[in-house]
């Protein structure tokens, strides 16, 4: 599946998660290798967000194990902090800090969590703003930017933590159509640079372009894991076929 003998970096085994009586995730098995790009799709409420949020412990799983870079994810705060240094998250709603300028948004993590000195952090911030193609917006506040620009700032903020893995939870679904491609372009560039990515999205053209592995979820389960070629041409499961027919219809 395109991992070319690379090291596994995320290992999820028999993982489950309930909210009260409701079982949001059941028996999840997923291995992501270093440099691999995984695209996760599935109907609304199928547990996609919950699964990737478990990977950096924004949600705590109840059963099974999650290992990131050989660190076991459990209540141990030391492990949680260690994993959050490796894993960055980009949210659907951007979640930029509205009271801070773009460059302050970017330097907060490096300075406070990584104890980097502020001058170095600013150099780093400007480097990544360049990389997401908005170096000229550094001094503005998030509210002064368009949605697409805000999401690119959010990606740059994640990159400033120099993570080994990036998680994306529907990064383009809060955007106006004309801004989607500017964000996807940045994500394609990241993929080409070899970043390990787990991306929840319904942008199937993006998935075709970058994915090494497609994961389809339904009702809290991983129904199918396949290479994009197989996934789009000959999906094994009936549920995958129905889903693909629905979203590829237009």
């Amino acid at each position: 599946m395109g991992n070319n003998g690379r090291e596994p970096i995320i290992k999820i085994a028999g993982m489950g998660k309930s909210f009260g009586d409701f079982e949001a995730l059941k028996n999840i098995h997923l291995t992501v290798h270093n440099g691999e790009r995984v695209v996760v799709c599935g109907p609304s409420g199928s547990g996609k967000s919950t699964m990737i949020r478990c990977i950096n412990r924004l949600e705590a799983h109840d059963v099974g194990t999650i290992t990131v870079d050989n660190i076991d994810l459990n209540e141990n705060t030391k492990n949680i902090n260690a994993i959050r240094r490796e894993v960055a998250m980009v949210f659907q709603q951007f979640n930029l800090f509205p009271h801070l300028t773009v460059v302050e948004n970017l330097t907060l993590g490096p300075v406070r969590a990584r104890k980097m000195n502020p001058a170095d952090a600013e150099v780093l911030a400007r480097k990544y703003l360049e990389r997401v193609h908005i170096p000229e917006q550094a001094e503005k506040y998030p509210a002064q930017l368009s949605g697409g620009q805000q999401q690119r700032v959010a990606i740059a903020r994640s990159l400033c933590m120099e993570p080994r893995i990036m998680l994306f939870d529907e990064p383009t679904s809060a955007l106006d159509p004309e801004m989607i491609s500017e964000v996807l372009d940045v994500m394609v560039e990241l993929a080409e640079d070899g970043m390990t990515m787990v991306c929840v999205t319904h942008e199937m053209s993006f998935a075709r372009k970058v994915a090494d592995t497609m994961v389809f979820m339904d009702a809290g389960e991983i129904v199918e894991t396949a290479s994009p070629e197989q996934f789009f041409s000959a999906p094994e499961s009936k549920r995958t076929q129905i889903f693909l027919n629905q979203i590829l219809q237009y």
């Binding site: 979640n95 800090f97 969590a113 990584r114």
Partner: peptide
């Protein structure tokens, strides 16, 4: 979302 963003960049 603000709290989650702060958590995910590793703030104490």
């Amino acid at each position: 979302g603000q709290i989650e963003a702060a958590d995910s960049i590793g703030l104490s």
